Amino acid sequence: MHEARFWDKAAEGKVKCSLCRFRCLIAEGQRGVCGVRENREGVLYTLVYGRSIAENVDPIEKKPLFHYHPGSKSFSIATVGCNFRCLHCQNADISQWPHTGRPIAGHDLPPAEIVRRAKAAGCRSIAYTYTEPTIFLEYAYDTAALASREGIGNVFVTNGYITPEALEAVAPFLDAANVDLKGFSEKFYREVAGATLQGVLDSLKEYRRLGIWIEVTTLIIPGHNDGEADLKGIARFIADELGAHVPWHVTAFYPTYKMIASPPTPAATLRKARQIGIDAGLRYVYEGNIPGEGGENTFCPACGKVVIERCGFRLGQVRTEGGKCGFCGEKIEGIGL
């Protein structure tokens, strides 16, 4: 039990949570949409502070973050819980755990120990990932503050539903984020994720305003969000509202969780999406979940040569110097390139 942040008292013993864009009004003894924030006698508590459900040393490319210290390692942690209900969640066993009626799972892993383990493993950053970092923000915030003092970066892998006030609080310690832009229609978000598109778009603009390095990922699901209008809408939004330098990862779907009847994404669909991004003026568009196809390489937007080679999560030759193309000197945006 740990008292939460970002909440206010409301009438009749209720509390108003302002951590994510659902802004839940929670009655006594009840929990918010995430399932891990509970009103006990008019005080909001987080049930997952210091309760890690998973930790691993991952390549930063797995997040995926391709323009943040390429080739580095990231100490990755998560708790149970999520504020979305994605039908295609790859980590539903832990993200939806609080809704099973079972006690909150996890083992004790305090922030200082996370930082110690990250340093011992030679990690350049700590990634708050696997589930949704917003719902364990108090835990992530304290860890990130300690990590920053030790020269370790912090990155979110997120659904992009955090409130502006919560993001502003953690922003001084947050170096980068990969934000899911799951589709480009309110219908898709409502039916597949249980959220709103506009909330994610607004959040993405907040990340950009605060100067946090962002990369955007869209998992393309055949028959759901693979229409040309959807893909063009996402590409235009990134180019116009976030900046042409913001990388867009278009990744392949594989049947999972409650969408096992949907077919895998054809490689041709990813190639079409990548071309749509390039035609919209995006400087960096990547194809994910189909290693070895060449769509994971970073190409110089000016001369077209490969400046960072990748295959899956493995880094090949890097031909950048001081954030510039090693061939023609064009700027290659990012951190630690």
Rank of each mutant, 00 (worst) to 15 (best):
R5D: 04
F6R: 00
A10E: 14
A10W: 12
G13C: 06
V15A: 03
V15H: 02
V15S: 04
F22C: 02
F22H: 12
A27L: 03
Q30D: 15
V36D: 12
E38V: 09
Y45E: 02
R51T: 13
S52E: 08
D58Q: 07
N83H: 14
N83W: 06
F84H: 04
R85W: 09
C89S: 09
A92K: 01
A92H: 13
P103N: 03
H107G: 07
P110W: 01
E113H: 02
R116D: 06
A118H: 11
C123V: 08
T131A: 12
P133M: 01
Y139T: 00
Y139M: 00
A140D: 05
A140H: 00
T143H: 10
A144D: 01
I162R: 08
I162N: 07
P164W: 00
L167Q: 12
E168N: 09
E168G: 13
A171M: 07
P172F: 05
D180Q: 08
D180S: 12
L181A: 10
E186Y: 15
Y189V: 06
E191P: 10
A193I: 15
Q198H: 11
G199Y: 06
K205E: 14
L210Q: 07
I214T: 15
E215T: 14
T217I: 14
I220Y: 02
H224V: 10
L231P: 15
E241Q: 12
G243F: 01
G243E: 00
M259T: 04
M259S: 02
P263E: 13
A268F: 02
L270V: 08
L270Y: 05
A273T: 03
Y284T: 06
G288H: 15
P291G: 05
F299A: 01
A302K: 02
K305P: 11
V307E: 11
R310F: 14
C311I: 12
G312H: 11
R314E: 09
L315N: 09
E321A: 13
G323S: 06
G323V: 09
K324M: 09
C325N: 08
C328D: 04
G329T: 10
G329L: 07
K331R: 08
